[in-house]
Amino acid sequence: MLEARLVQGSMLRKVVDAVKDLVSDANIDVSSSGFSLQAMDTSHVSLIAMHLRADAFEHFRCDRPMSMGMSLANLAKVLKCAGSDDIVTLKANDDGDTVTFMFESPKEDRVSDFELKLMDIDSEHLGIPDTDYCATVTMPAGEYARICKDLSSIGDTVVISATKDGVKFTTSGDVGTANVTVRQNTTADKKEDQTIIDLKEPVALTFALRYLTSFAKATPLATHVTLSMTRELPVMVEYAIQDMGHLRFYLAPKIED
């Protein structure tokens, strides 16, 4: 049996809204450690890895691990019915084919419940090794979203190069070329405006902008996003889900044959 009560229920909607355009159906795996989701997009170019820790929940009971397969579009429809400040409680039986979402208003004057049908989904689970990244940049999430949007209007692919001078995003297309350089800024008055670059070795990688732009749908989750890069390996784009977990996107680079 599963029972999980999340005071900040809107976090769930933000996570689902961030990934539902990349992945249509996914298993949400639940165990005593919490909720996790791992899924590749249909083109197998990117991988989503989400984890919400059990201690993020006010109440968490999971008697045995279970995989809840669901349509993320349908899950998004259900979560959209929750008020932005509602407390969300999930309940499911071990061998059931549904999961119930209960939404409670903060003043406890409105309670609703929605039962969502589960589905069987075959999914490959990939092992993601810990990587020593050459370059890690933590920047305001809004700035990342803006760079992706601006460059997408010019080109389809972006070269992200990290050097001691900063992190440069370069694209080109029919219109011409565009470069945006982000430099370390740890003196900004507001912490949410700060950019931190940790460079061990210079690295440059090429990516499809379409995916990087899609990842920016997670912007409402966090003030900052962290990009981690190593030569010839996928970039990891990570949004912290407050102190409750993380949403990570891995994007395979484009590599010369």
């Binding site: 170019v45 990117s46 689970h125 092992g127 499809a208 395979a252 680079p253 484009k254 044959d257």
Partner: peptide, 14 residues
């Protein structure tokens, strides 16, 4: 030009 790699080629199947 550069070729798009498949993400699963970077990670092992569990």
């Amino acid at each position: 030009g550069a070729k798009q790699r498949d993400i699963s080629s970077f990670f092992s199947v569990k």
